[in-house]
């Protein structure tokens, strides 16, 4: 009886794993495969493998567009904004999670409701702010806007993370004479690694993929980010599927590769906090 139950549980677990893997990987593999097919092949049989691995679409993309630069811009805007805002929000979330002070609830509510402001409603004020600072058509203007993007989510996740750290540790630190900043920096921050990683990843991905403000606030080719490049291939009266799939691949792949590299780090930090308990 027990072994049947165990086998069933095991089978269920493997099924869930398989389901997750197929659903996550298959659509992307299909897009990448299609980028090597001709327009006609895509139309005639969606499942067939490409007959000849034609790189033409990719050659065209890289000859016409400066993808390495777009990649660099995306990395810069998303990376810098994530690092800076992660520090900001960690500080904010830390005091909200651990201290009682006047205005605590109000601030927490104000920070979380930022999640509810529709993006399109922010267009005009943000545009005027960025042009006012002279940052129109600059990747730094985009970076600045991204600072604000993950506020609610990060405060949420980080607050939960800091709350999970036993108060006894802070008290012990206080007894040993650690000041406010040191208690935060050397005790709490390392122990909130998993929450920091989660918030950081979420913010980075959101900014990495952001299209609307990046497209609105930049104009020159030299300030362009990856998602904007994709929009060129979906414009009115374009119909070249091969180029579209190739562009999708070129825009998607760097993110996945980046993730593949960072993934080890992410897992290590999550695992480290796991063991601590």
């Amino acid at each position: 009886m027990n072994t049947v139950k165990k086998t069933a549980t095991r089978a269920l677990m493997y099924f869930v794993e398989l389901f997750v893997i197929v659903l996550s990987v298959f659509p992307i593999l299909w897009v990448m495969m299609s980028a090597f097919k001709t327009n006609g092949e895509i139309l005639s049989d969606p499942l067939a493998l490409p007959t000849a691995f034609s790189m033409d679409a990719f050659v065209y993309l890289f000859e016409t567009y400066n993808f390495p630069l777009y990649f660099w811009n995306s990395l810069l805007a998303a990376g810098v904004s994530t690092l800076v805002s992660l520090l900001f929000y960690a500080m904010g979330a830390y005091v909200i999670a651990k201290f009682q002070f006047p205005g605590r609830q109000l601030l927490f509510i104000l920070f979380t409701i930022t999640l509810l402001v529709p993006g399109h409603s922010k267009t005009q004020p943000i545009f005027s702010l960025v042009t006012g600072l002279g940052l129109y058509d600059s990747i730094w203007g985009v970076t600045l806007v991204y600072l604000s993007a993950g506020m609610a989510m990060s405060i949420f996740v980080l607050k939960a993370g800091f709350m999970a750290i036993p108060k006894s540790l802070d008290e012990a630190a206080a007894i040993e004479g650690a000041g406010f900043v040191r208690t935060f920096w050397s005790i709490n921050l390392p122990l909130a690694k998993s929450a920091l990683a989660t918030a950081g990843i979420l913010m980075f991905l959101g900014n990495w993929n952001e299209y609307y403000f990046a497209s609105l606030l930049t104009m020159s080719d030299s300030q362009r980010t990856l998602p904007i490049a994709l929009a060129f291939f979906t414009s009115e009266f374009s119909y070249n599927y091969t180029n579209l799939f190739a562009a999708l691949t070129v825009v998607i792949l760097p993110g996945i590769i980046l993730y593949a590299f960072a993934q080890e780090q992410v897992q290590a930090s999550v695992a480290a906090t796991g063991i601590k308990g």
């Binding site: 794993e17 997750v20 893997i21 659903l23 996550s24 990987v25 659509p27 992307i28 991905l205 990495w208 993929n209 952001e210 299209y211 998602p227 994709l230 999708l248 825009v251 998607i252 993110g255 996945i256 980046l258 993730y259 593949a260 993934q263 897992q267």
Partner: peptide, 15 residues
């Protein structure tokens, strides 16, 4: 599985 599950979120909602 955990690593692969993340991939769809690496891509933008638009894509």
């Amino acid at each position: 599985t955990r690593a692969v599950f993340m991939i769809p979120n690496v891509i933008s909602a638009a894509a």
